[in-house]
Design a protein around this nucleic acid. Structure first.
Lengths: 200, 200
DNA sequence: GTCTATAATCAGATAGAC
DNA sequence: GTCTATCTGATTATAGAC
């Protein structure tokens, strides 16, 4: 039945080239700029190849997302090994350009069921990992610092980090300095002065 | 020089109809679905009328945004009259469907200079109003409750509220219950039990 | 397994008719 | 002041060639 058409091998070189092009385009100009033509152009390939390697444009978006998410999980596992996991999360999420890409995907996902489910799935995995590590860390620091359950600490930190990044992108800054100060004071209470940023 | 073409009157009935259609479409299917054809279809008008009332599609987006932003400012002024402004902000931003539309505009604005500036401008106005009111409120409650500067309290509350709404839309919920509990406990410490929601 | 020729549809915008 | 006929180009997707 559905789609007898053949699809390119998952490890073909040009498939990766197309993924790179799509991701870059998405970051630079937003998901609406990710058309088969523009992706191909950026990749130096013919537009039809996009449909050879990805049945639909939605499939392409999905593939871009999965690739980044998997890499993100590996990277997070790395930085969470830090003795100061809260600092690591905070620094990562206020500074990484990944946040912009995530925003783009979230906006796109708002109206695409499959992608939305995929994002939720990965987001839960990210948070689970975070929770485990932060729970252990808070235990180490001695409980009751402010009686914050680990998940709540994470949600708070991530919420603020995200807001700051979004507003920064818009060119806003009112209240940012004061907020960063308060958050970092809190982190310092828990984890002490931040060490130099971790490798990779 | 530029564009000698005439443009429809700002108060023409069909202009409003088109704005309504565009806004609804944006909410239901995302900004990428807002094309002249689809807007016109939803409005029961001819596609070309979109370009008669709005020179470009960007102009249309801008007009939709401004209309909502102005209305939002009026509404916020209303709810900030509450004797419990922090509760009002929290409730409004965790429950209002407006948040979804704002997200959509923010994503769109990410790659459109003019719209981005406009959103930043209005966002600052929103925050200024909030700051004034919350500052007065915190003073009333007696300072030093947790030594949070008003702007910081606002940024924290807004950040968390936004994260919860976004994740909710994705279908996520891990950590939400606990976070809501903590935030509302904090609000209760400051402003007591929330009264019934305000009118309008 | 890799890519191209081609179909079918939809997009933004403008000049000009009422 | 209001709307329509129409141009030009882009977009997704498929069937079929190498």
């Amino acid at each position: 039945m559905a789609s007898a058409r053949r699809i390119g091998a998952p490890d073909a070189k040009n498939r990766g080239v197309l993924l790179d092009a799509a991701e870059q385009l998405m970051l630079e100009e937003g998901y609406a700029a990710v058309t088969s033509r523009r992706v191909a152009q950026k990749a130096g390939l013919k537009p039809q190849l996009v449909h050879y390697y990805f049945r639909t444009m939605d499939d392409l978006f999905m593939a871009v997302f999965r690739r980044r998410a998997e890499q993100g999980l590996r990277y997070q596992a790395e930085i969470l090994k830090s003795p100061q996991p809260l600092w690591a999360l905070w620094k990562f999420h206020t500074e990484s350009p990944d946040t912009a890409l995530t925003m783009e995907f979230t906006a796109l996902a708002n109206h695409r069921k499959e992608l939305r489910a995929e994002i939720a799935y990965y987001a839960e995995r990210f948070r689970d990992e975070q929770s485990k590590v932060v729970a252990r860390a808070l235990e180490r620091y001695g409980t009751g610092v402010h009686e914050l359950p680990p998940v709540v600490a994470i949600v708070l930190v991530m919420g603020v980090a995200q807001l700051l990044v979004i507003e920064n992108t818009l060119g806003m800054s009112s209240g940012h300095g004061e907020t960063v100060e308060i958050v970092e004071r809190y982190l310092r209470q828990l984890e002490g002065e931040p060490a130099i940023s971790p490798g990779t």
